[in-house]
Write a protein that binds this DNA or RNA. Structure first.
Lengths: 118, 118
DNA sequence: TCACCTCATCGCGATTTACTTATATGGCTA
DNA sequence: TAGCCATATAAGTAAATCGCGATGAGGTGA
């Protein structure tokens, strides 16, 4: 009794996952984009995305190198309201809006690696 | 960032707490009434109530022996919607409706103790 | 005042969660 | 097909969570 509902709220019970939802509210994004913005490692982001997907919040789509995650368009009304009610972080939203999806990952992540090539 | 919201959803991330909210949706109740209905111990119920109160869902009121908990009437709209959207359990709602607050605890709990007095 | 009632808190063990690093997977491209 | 890229999974650890029984706190009433 109420296990299913608790499961859904448990998926929302983490600040990083809420931030991911707020970011994806602007537009879909691939894992590496989120990794470039969030203060946790790539596996952590991957695990959070899996949790949100299993709870029914996200869909995934493969394209070229990247896996894009997006908020399900057929979200139940209550969940849609919850997502809509999340606070807006101006910096986060500006950031994800100005990303050019196909460039971010390679461009951003090659730079740091340059130092390891020496 | 998003810590406060996560805190709220964490308070909802447990089936027993959701069931308590659904029960209190019918009417306020004292701890011993909830203990009489839920499949967990009195300390567990007490802790769940504290968690819900700290998250801002409940108020408490003392009267004679009992502490009555109720859903805050000034709940933010989003939280009010969340509580309203919880599934209705007919048996639970019938049960709490037919309780006569002042009788339940002493009546119900004296009986089992009789066997330990022998 | 003292016994009794409800409820809160303490202290503990078991489980879950969220993170890390290391490594595996699988698509893409040369 | 060989190597690279983004992503997923594995394994381990620290902290949070949920349950219990025992006990403490505080009001009530004889």
């Amino acid at each position: 009794m109420y296990e299913d509902e608790a499961q859904i709220y448990r998926a929302l019970a983490d600040p990083t996952r809420l931030r991911i939802l707020a970011l994806l509210r602007v537009r879909e994004a691939c894992v590496c984009e989120l990794v470039g913005r969030l203060p946790v490692s790539q596996p952590a982001v991957s695990q959070h995305l899996r949790r949100l997907r299993q709870a029914g919040f996200l869909t995934e789509r493969r394209q070229k190198y990247w896996t894009y995650y997006a908020i399900r368009s057929d979200l139940p009304p209550m969940l849609k309201e919850i997502v809509a009610a999340l606070p807006h972080d101006a910096a986060d939203e500006a950031w994800i809006r100005e990303q050019t999806a196909d460039l971010v990952c390679t461009e951003v992540k090659v730079a740091p690696r340059a130092s390891t090539r020496s």
